[in-house]
């Protein structure tokens, strides 16, 4: 009974939070409710006994949404409401409704057909973390490594794009050095 109560409570909270994310025109509300919704989702993992995934959900999405906040700070005055430009609300509602319907169909079809079974069932007396590790490093080793390489590529390109003049620190240079650097920059542009 307690599990049912917890499930419906968190289901309601999650849906409410994501609704706020979509419907509000205040950047700070949207970001905060997004973070809250992501964290409430971890409750379902805990309820299903997948402790590891629950904790990972919290850690990953806390950091990810934190980066979104940083962008929010750069682009918006977060204490004011945003004026949104909606050229046609019909298209927005139509497309988002269709997308939602498709997701529901994709996930309901296997359940409705009753041919659902775990390919890798849980072992008795083996922890969550160990199970995930075992699957990750046997069956899914190649996708796992490819994802790691992709992240490495993204990281290196990020450093290359943002890392011009990273060897110089403005806070540690004297005024003359900064001036001469700016002048040489101007010459380079000309």
């Amino acid at each position: 009974m307690f599990e049912a109560i917890a499930f419906y409570l968190f289901a309601f909270l999650t849906v409410a939070m994501f609704s706020i994310t979509v419907l509000t025109s205040q950047a700070l509300y949207a970001l905060t409710s997004l973070a809250a919704g992501m964290i409430f989702i971890s409750a379902f993992f805990f309820l299903l006994g997948a402790d590891f995934l629950g904790a990972v959900q919290i850690i990953v999405y806390t950091g990810a949404v934190m980066a979104l906040y940083a962008f929010g700070m750069m682009f918006f005055d977060t204490t004011r409401e945003l004026k949104e430009k909606n050229s046609s609300s019909m298209i927005v509602f139509g497309l988002s409704g269709l997308a939602a319907l498709m997701v529901v169909v994709i996930f309901v079809t296997p359940i409705a057909s009753e041919h659902i079974s775990a390919i890798y069932p849980m072992h008795e007396n083996v922890g969550n973390t160990q199970e995930v590790g075992m699957i990750l490093f046997t069956k899914y080793l190649v996708p796992f490594e490819v994802a790691a390489v992709m992240l490495l590529v993204a990281m290196i390109s990020g450093i290359v794009l943002a890392g011009k003049k990273m060897d110089r620190s403005l806070t540690q240079m004297s005024e003359e050095e900064i001036q001469s650097m700016q002048e040489s920059d101007k010459k380079a542009v000309l």
């Binding site: 402790d51 590891f52 629950g54 990972v56 919290i58 850690i59 806390t62």
Partner: peptide, 18 residues
Amino acid sequence: DINVGILYILGVMAIGLY
């Protein structure tokens, strides 16, 4: 006593920075 104690503690403490 969940079996991912440390991950849980680190994750929840990280939320505190919000």
